[in-house]
Nucleic acid binder design. Structure first.
Length: 288
DNA sequence: CTTGGGTCCTGTGCGC
DNA sequence: TGCGCACAGGACCCAA
């Protein structure tokens, strides 16, 4: 599910209940997600204070007192929700018993001293959680080869040019490669390529140099706009309060098969093709 | 080294 | 209404 804008939206929703707060209780409700939780995961988290909640690419990172960082990846279907009972209690509303129960795919519970009850739900279980020493975070296999953060100054046309040099894959696949730029997924790659009017089939090292800077700017722009919209809510993504993002209403190409191309003056239709096993949506008329 | 394909898992929507 | 298949915001792992 979540690409950078969705993870950022989740981070912002969790800030008031996690950053500067202490974890009073942590409970895992099964032994693994994509892989097992680290040894004593819940026990090692209990009582720790979250000094800072930040994001790297699609990872949520909670820096804890004691020199370790809780690493969370939402996979395809992961959600974090702040318990409705906390919101209702704040409003003085009646708390329904069902609000306190667990669903079938609620895998991790965090309680902070906000106070708040935060539930991680992930029906496909492609998500992961780990606890890593701060000093070894950058060298950790999850982050070691990761490319630049797209909204930072470390992501620019010169860096992108170097990263694409010699790449034999289509640009669509290259931009999904987290070593090239970290945080894009299927939606925002399709959207950025449409905005930049670059064909997803064009080989990565064959992009005209003059088109690289616009591509970089469109990538940044679509991410920023999507964050402002609270991300895209298709199937699984919701904000931590359960409300939906609305960037899906701004899609130009993604999931718009058969609809007219929104590029001004373009008479094309959005097509769906498969690249590297994933759907690509684009306009063959204006994307060259 | 790079690249492509299969795989993990569950749920949903479609055509028949 | 049921069944089977395709597909879903991701990213490993392994073979070539």
């Amino acid at each position: 599910m979540p690409e950078l804008p969705e993870v950022e939206t989740v981070r912002q929703g969790l800030l008031p209940v996690l950053e500067g707060r202490r974890l009073l209780k942590v409970e895992t409700r099964r032994a693994d997600l994509r892989r097992p939780f680290p040894p004593d995961f819940a026990r090692r988290l209990t009582g720790r204070k979250v000094l800072r909640l930040y994001r790297r690419a699609k990872y949520l990172l909670a820096e804890l007192d004691g020199g370790e960082t809780l690493v969370i990846h939402l996979g395809m279907s992961g959600r974090m929700s702040v318990g409705v009972e906390d919101q209702k209690r704040a409003l003085g509303a009646y708390i329904h018993a069902a609000d306190l129960g667990f669903g079938k795919h609620d895998h991790v519970l965090f309680e902070s001293d906000a106070p708040a009850r935060i539930v991680f739900t992930d029906h496909r279980r492609f998500g992961l959680m780990d606890l890593i020493e701060n000093d070894s975070l950058e060298q950790h296999p999850l982050f070691r080869a990761m490319g630049p953060e797209p909204l930072s100054n470390h992501f620019n046309s010169a860096i992108l040019k170097a990263a694409l040099k010699g790449k034999k894959t289509p640009i669509k696949s290259a931009l999904l490669d987290q070593r090239v730029v970290a945080g894009l997924g299927n939606i925002y790659v399709c959207e950025a390529l449409h905005m930049a009017q670059i064909s997803p089939k064009r080989l990565a090292d064959k992009i005209q140099p003059a088109k690289l800077e616009p591509l970089v700017q469109h990538i940044k722009a679509v991410l920023i706009t999507a964050i402002e919209a609270g991300g895209s809510s298709l199937r699984d993504h919701a904000r931590t309060d359960g409300t939906m993002g609305y960037f899906q209403h701004n899609f130009r190409a993604y999931d718009r098969t058969g609809q007219p191309c929104p590029t001004p003056g373009c008479k094309g239709m959005i097509k769906r093709i498969t690249q590297a096993g994933r759907s690509t949506f684009y306009c063959a008329t204006c994307q060259k």
